[in-house]
């Protein structure tokens, strides 16, 4: 069976669910260009929807990064959201960030924390500060056992040390404008808890145990594709998890889905409605331009979002997006 996505029925069951609630998933204006600069990563997390690892070789070239910057400049897109892999391992990463910052864009980086200990990366906190980067970092739990179970042995200890470095640089500190947000993913086949409640736990425990502060915690649901789908199948949890996502469908989450205000760009410059669609190679509406070179936000506004069964992951419970829960609680 194809390991990239959940089993598809003859019809699109997500579209059927939307229709049953009188809903249609269409974009609004493009406010975020989310760019995946490659699959190379210093970690190989068990839930990774990118299948990223130190062995991956797919990486965005300088030429494609230039095309991203040209689009950002030409269309005055407010936010560049950079992800990977570990995006810092792309040789064009610092160029992309500093140029986007110079253009006046708000730059977010999905930073895995431990990459700071890779050769040549120890000044990352200072570089982030210079470019006023919003740092968004995964930390599945405030305890070592759960974090290492998902992200690998020794990751928690390194992550805590990296967070200390970010705090020392002014990130996530009260009164500072340097934003440090954390991301919570369930360490297994279950839905995230209410965001406000687990954020309060993280703030209390991270300060009490490690003296670390941060701005916000985003809860993100594990998507049943790629490496997490492999885990679901290996552990016999696939059917139960998919059923859980479908049964937890929340029509109120649809309006706030991330695909409605972003366009996702892959390492080759191809366009998608989100990073998850990118990983299963489900491109944007075939009627639209397919690459960043031909991108035109006017054509992408109000576009019909391409969906498949994995989309139930973003509409379950309080919903899930790159900015955490969609329905605040």
């Amino acid at each position: 069976m194809d390991r990239s996505t959940v089993p598809m029925s003859a019809t699109n069951d997500f579209e059927e669910k939307l229709a049953a609630h009188g809903l249609e998933l269409r974009a609004e204006t493009v406010e975020i260009l989310q760019v995946n600069v490659g699959k190379l990563c210093n970690q190989a997390c068990k839930h990774c929807h990118v299948d990223a690892s130190p062995k991956r070789t797919e990486i965005m070239t300088r030429e494609t990064a230039e095309q991203v910057l040209a689009a950002l400049h030409r269309f005055r897109i407010p936010t560049l959201d950079i992800t990977g892999g570990a995006p810092e391992l792309n040789p064009s990463f610092r160029y992309l960030v500093s140029q986007a910052h110079a253009l006046g864009a708000h730059v977010c980086v999905r930073h895995n924390l431990t990459v700071i200990f890779e050769p040549g990366q120890d000044d990352l906190p200072e570089f982030f500060r210079e470019c006023e980067v919003e740092v968004i970092s995964s930390l599945p739990y405030f305890l070592e056992q759960q974090t290492d179970a998902q992200r690998g042995h020794g990751v928690f200890e390194k992550s805590v040390e990296a967070l200390r470095r970010l705090n020392e640089t002014g990130y996530g500190i009260d009164g500072s404008n340097l934003i440090l947000n954390l991301v919570y993913n369930p360490v297994g086949a279950y839905l995230p808890p209410p965001q406000a409640s687990i954020e309060a736990d993280f703030k209390r425990e991270m300060m009490a145990r490690y003296g670390i502060s941060f701005n916000h915690l985003y809860t993100i649901t594990n998507m049943p594709i790629k490496r997490f789908l492999d885990y679901l199948r290996r552990s016999g949890n696939e059917e139960r998890y998919i059923r859980k996502l479908i049964e937890a469908f929340n029509p109120q989450a649809v309006a706030g889905l991330m695909c409605r205000n972003l366009v996702s760009v892959d390492w080759l410059g191809r366009l998608y409605d989100c990073d998850f669609n990118q990983m299963i190679e489900l491109g944007v509406d075939p009627e639209l331009p397919q690459t960043i070179v031909d991108f035109d936000p006017a054509k992408f506004a109000l576009r019909r979002i391409q969906t498949a069964s994995h989309c139930f992951g973003c509409t379950a419970g309080a919903g899930s997006s790159c900015g955490g829960a969609v329905v605040k609680n």
């Binding site: 759960q146 369930p186 297994g188 279950y190 808890p193 209410p194 409640s197 687990i198 419970g317």
Partner: peptide
């Protein structure tokens, strides 16, 4: 057990 996990207990 599931409800505890999904409400944030460890």
């Amino acid at each position: 057990a599931q409800a505890c996990l999904e409400s944030g207990s460890n």
